[in-house]
């Protein structure tokens, strides 16, 4: 299984699309590693500086409809090769969400008020997340504050995370 704990990158905007996560001009690459320098290169977000703000981050916390747009799996790959294996948001675009789990990564959906609370308590300070997949929760901490937050993950998605992705699962079952 991949690592789902570490420093948090807060992206305070809804509808961040796959062209922003990895621009189409890099889709000519045929290795995942080649995408690494270009993650979030075209993100339109005040205060965000590329690539400074993605250094040493392992988890993204953002708003609604993250990953809308193109079906490119290059978007989760670009996250993965930068060490980001978990995204926490209000909801995700369908294809992006499926791609994340198909890669053995986690897309955790939480209610808007929980997301709001995390932004107001932690987005201004250095924050980290420790995920306990067995207990379906993560601990978020920054400055002197710590909070335990439960999240749900379906049995099927969990089996993809544990199998390291959908190819392994499907090869065994179909």
């Amino acid at each position: 299984m991949k690592n789902f704990s570490g420093n948090v990158l807060f992206l305070d905007r809804s509808d961040i699309n796959t062209d922003e996560i990895i621009p189409a001009k890099y889709l000519t690459e045929i290795s995942k590693e080649a995408l690494k320098p270009f993650l979030l290169e075209d993100l339109k977000l005040d205060g965000f500086e590329h690539p400074r703000d993605i250094q040493d981050k392992s988890v993204i916390i953002t708003r609604a409809n993250f990953g809308c747009g193109s079906s490119r799996e290059h978007a989760p790959w670009a996250l993965e090769v930068n060490g980001i294996n978990m995204v926490i948001a209000e909801n995700f675009a369908r294809i992006f969400r499926q791609n994340i789990f198909n890669c053995g990564m986690i897309a955790a959906e939480l209610p808007a008020d929980t997301i709001n609370r995390m932004f107001s308590s932690f987005s201004d300070v250095e924050t980290s997340v420790q995920t306990d997949l067995k207990k379906n929760m993560f601990t978020i901490s920054g400055n002197d504050k710590t909070e335990e937050i439960p999240f749900s993950i379906s049995d099927f998605d969990r089996s993809l995370v544990e199998a390291g992705g959908w190819v392994g699962y499907a090869d065994k079952h179909y």
């Binding site: 079906s71 490119r72 799996e73 989760p76 294809i95 992006f96 499926q98 791609n99 198909n102 890669c103 992705g165 959908w166 190819v167 499907a170 090869d171 179909y174």
Partner: peptide, 16 residues
């Protein structure tokens, strides 16, 4: 439906 590369890969291999 549009899918990512992993779903495509399984579709090519298994037809599901």
């Amino acid at each position: 439906a549009g899918v990512g590369t992993t779903d495509l890969e399984v579709g090519i291999l298994k037809g599901v």
